[in-house]
């Protein structure tokens, strides 16, 4: 009786089994890493806006503070996008004929808000609150990156749950003095209080910051 399997069968079985294991491992890796990749999280993508607003020009160039436009950041969950009125505080007098600003002028004359495209979005089940973060020593930069050097605004951090938890588990190293909250290119210097001292000064540590209900309702 002839052999059921030819000698080649050994090779075929080995290749198929290794291939199957490879596919399973590959799918698992892809399933885990793909949603966390910068590509999927749109990190570094400059987003098309109705007016190509440059934070680099307004913040780094002119020295305008974040709060001049995002004025509710200290009091509200939302940092808030400025109404056209805020743009016109200056642009009613300067660059009044710039074609680039036609959308802003039309918005004012037609009493129609400018609809900006959202750059940083968290899922609707995340209840992020700006005011508590800026009053407890977390700078804008920690989540938004060096916005003052962005000619067009892009998302600088992944903002995954892992990203939030990294800080909520150990906030100290991400805290800064109140005077430096709105500096988006801040580096600790020898005079900066150590993390433990900042934690005490901001009264952080009394509550477990990784409780679900801190961010989810």
């Amino acid at each position: 009786m002839a052999a059921v399997f030819s000698p080649r069968a050994n090779v075929i079985v080995t290749v198929v089994m290794l291939g199957a294991v490879g596919v399973v491992v590959g799918v698992c890796l892809w399933w885990f890493t793909w949603p966390r990749s910068d590509y999927v999280r749109h990190v570094g993508w400059a987003i098309q806006q109705p007016v190509p607003f440059s934070h680099q020009h307004h913040v780094a160039g002119l020295g305008i503070d974040c709060r001049f436009c995002h004025s509710s950041v200290e009091r509200s969950a939302q940092a808030s996008l400025p109404p056209t009125f805020t743009c016109m505080t200056c642009h009613s007098q300067i660059w009044t004929n710039a074609a680039l600003l036609a959308e802003v002028r039309d918005s004012l004359s037609e009493n129609r808000p400018i609809v900006w495209a959202r750059v940083t979005d968290v899922p609707d089940y995340v209840y992020f609150n700006h005011s508590i973060h800026v009053s407890k020593g977390v700078g804008c930069e920690s989540c938004h990156g060096d916005v003052a050097r962005m000619p067009l605004t892009y998302k600088a951090k992944t903002l995954t749950m892992q990203f939030c938890l990294d800080c909520h588990r150990d906030p100290g190293p991400n805290l800064r003095p109140l005077a430096n909250i709105y500096d988006t290119n801040w580096h600790p210097d020898p005079a900066t209080p150590p993390p433990a001292e900042l934690m005490r000064a901001y009264h952080i540590g009394g509550r477990n910051l990784t409780e679900c209900a801190i961010c989810h309702r």
Partner: peptide, 22 residues
């Protein structure tokens, strides 16, 4: 935050926005 862009930190009225044409 709100005044110095025009009024300048010293209040002399020559802030950065004034230097740019306001």
């Amino acid at each position: 935050v709100f005044c110095a862009p025009c009024h300048a930190e010293t209040g002399d009225g020559h802030g950065m926005i004034v230097q740019r044409g306001f």
